[in-house]
Design a protein around this nucleic acid. Sequence first.
DNA 1: CGTAGCTTTGATGTAGGTCAAGAAATGTGG
DNA 2: CCACATTTCTTGACCTACATCAAAGCTACG
Lengths: 243, 243
Amino acid sequence: MVHNSPFARKIASYVQLGEIEIQSVSDLYRRRRKFAPGLDLVHQGEIDQSAFIMADGWAFSYKILSDGARQIVNFHIPGDFLGVRSVLFRTSDHNVEPITQIEASEVSKTDLFQTFSKTPRLATAVLWAASRDEAMVVEHLVGVGQRPAPERTAHLILELSTRLKLVGLGDKTGFTCPLTQYHLADAMGLTPVHVNRVLREIREAGMMTFQNGRVTFDDYESLVDFADFDRTYLDQDGPALKM
Amino acid sequence: MVHNSPFARKIASYVQLGEIEIQSVSDLYRRRRKFAPGLDLVHQGEIDQSAFIMADGWAFSYKILSDGARQIVNFHIPGDFLGVRSVLFRTSDHNVEPITQIEASEVSKTDLFQTFSKTPRLATAVLWAASRDEAMVVEHLVGVGQRPAPERTAHLILELSTRLKLVGLGDKTGFTCPLTQYHLADAMGLTPVHVNRVLREIREAGMMTFQNGRVTFDDYESLVDFADFDRTYLDQDGPALKM
DNA sequence: CGTAGCTTTGATGTAGGTCAAGAAATGTGG
DNA sequence: CCACATTTCTTGACCTACATCAAAGCTACG
């Protein structure tokens, strides 16, 4: 039922859902639409932006510099609630583009605020998710600023794996992954050519294989070790619910 | 009076402050303490963290990797409200260290929520400030990922200048700046040695001088141009107040 | 079944890192 | 207010991680 949706599954792992919350989630969830790959669903500078709950597929948010360089800020997978910030506060300062065909529910500002006042617990969960996203951006900054390319790559893949496992996509052995090496490159501030070499290196070290739309962990433990990946990162110890 | 404080000044530029709001701000503001440079006021992993309103001095938030590398995530100046995220949601995932001696008001979780329910307009302003901080982190990621060192450096300094001007510190000619080249290096993912060379280059190009605790703009227009600095970045067109 | 988007590899270039060491500045105790 | 210590800054010589340029082989799907 509702709990089968990635969003509900994720939310439920943060807060105990009661009758009303389940109803609200299911309301938000019902109005799903499909979006084609490559067509931005959020763009920079737009006002009165909606938020989106991702139900299926992959997307990414990014910024473009005047010289055409693209920095991918984060990837979005099923269960993600994206654009909370733009909705709450003003114009969007970034773009969001689907990688695959995606299914997402558009949540208007009004809907969001109504849901918030009806079900404060849900509001907490949503804001908690937003705060998790922020932590991820910080982690990306740390990676790009301080980690060498191979470790950075391993770290990014492990982060994705962790997030995917939380919504029931993929497991310890690997996951299905529609990203191209160009996506990885723009997320990590590297060239596609170098990403390719780094992936080969990691593969030849027997740690992980990124090929044919699939990531396979050949030695998960070594990879975690190599990337210096914090296992508690993205762990939900739950939000400050007692408030 | 109250409006002379950097925090009130900044908040007032977002929302119209009424009687009650001014009172609240002034309440929060009164309980100031001094903190010595070098002693972290927030550390990673700590729970039930307070937020802080910076009244005077400079600080920075950062993360340390296991190999000792440090990534500075942002600098904090008077008027900044820091730690909103940690307070609202859980344990802190980063550290905050004062650069100079600072004066800051500690705002407990309880205080914050009380203020929020008493003065919703203030809540909006605070969340808006938090969202601005997030935008800055994204911009830092873009810089570290895509901009060459000289442009990156120019951009960071211009960002600081813009923020400082908003709270009445510094002007078009420059600002007082307690940052060392080590700070700049760790914020930008460069070595101090290279930062030094880049600063020289920028200085010799007649654009800006970073010396003796002061940044001087020798040719502001060229610098903005060189850094591809968006003049509307950090502009407050105001939050979504009509809600 | 062709053409456009990916991936892979090689040869070569360069931005920025590392190592080293002296010069300024800044701070501290007497 | 001066010696001395420590932290910053600056510069030079050299090195490496990653970029650039180029081209060939894959894959996919219209």
